[in-house]
């Protein structure tokens, strides 16, 4: 997989520092799963976070340092020794093995087994519940050769291609590519002709209004 559109420094910094909301983080972290160079960039940013920790003044409370140490010492010595493992264990439906984490945990099954909901114009979506009420997180399935419907503008929008590809102007976005759009970017992604395009779309711009227009236009367009 050759990835040509990566997560920006500003967005990755918010992820590295831990300030990025859950919804955006799903898109960023799933891009990271597919993109070794961006994992390296994340690691470099975390090292910078570490360097800031080094620079902190250890200052106040040194009188209680020994008490702190004794507390932690007794905690670690009394803790049962479990072999250190990575926090997550991928013991899930095998059919989902093609979906990278962390997205897989949110879906549970492979793209083909999801209960897709029709959006009109042959497109489908699958809303993903998250803890962020004001951010829309969902998968979109766009028929080959068709534009992305219900396309909100006015806020931030992250689109991660998972299968197939889309064109936006002269740019081609393939599997693993992340498109980062803000209110200043006028764009209209169109799925390429070869196959349906599945992408993860996260946005804080209102979508419902556009959706209604699409459904109103539907009979006129005769689709």
């Amino acid at each position: 997989m050759t990835i040509s559109h990566h997560v920006s420094d500003a967005l990755l910094l918010d992820y590295a520092s831990g300030t990025l909301e859950e919804s955006w983080s799903i898109a960023v972290a799933t891009h990271l799963a597919l993109c070794p160079p961006c994992r390296q960039r994340l690691s470099a940013m975390e090292d910078i976070g570490g360097a800031f920790i080094d620079r902190l003044d250890p200052e106040a409370g040194s009188e209680s340092e020994d008490a702190s140490w004794l507390a932690v010492r007794s905690a670690v010595l009394s803790a049962p020794e479990a072999p250190a493992t990575t926090p997550k264990s991928p013991a899930r439906d095998d059919s989902a093995a093609t979906v990278p984490e962390p997205l897989r945990s949110y879906l549970g099954v492979d793209y083909d087994k999801l209960k897709w909901r029709p959006l009109g114009l042959g497109a489908y979506h699958y809303p993903i519940p998250t803890g962020d009420k004001s951010i829309s997180t969902r998968l979109l399935r766009i028929p080959a050769g068709k534009p992305v419907p219900e396309h909100g503008h006015g806020g931030r929008e992250l689109t991660l291609v998972l299968r197939g590809s889309f064109r936006d102007g002269d740019d081609l976005f393939g599997a693993g590519d992340l498109e980062e759009a803000d209110e200043h970017l006028e764009h209209q992604p169109i799925a390429t002709e070869e196959e349906d395009c599945i992408c993860l779309a996260v946005t804080d711009s209102p979508l419902k209004f556009r959706s209604r227009i699409v459904s109103l236009l539907q009979p006129l367009l005769g689709i």
């Binding site: 859950e22 990278p100 803890g131």
Partner: peptide
Amino acid sequence: IDAVRKTRRPEYDPNDPALSPA
């Protein structure tokens, strides 16, 4: 993040078979 923000932090899994290896 767990204690102060009380939100979930989605992360990639380094042992994920679907991960593109470095």
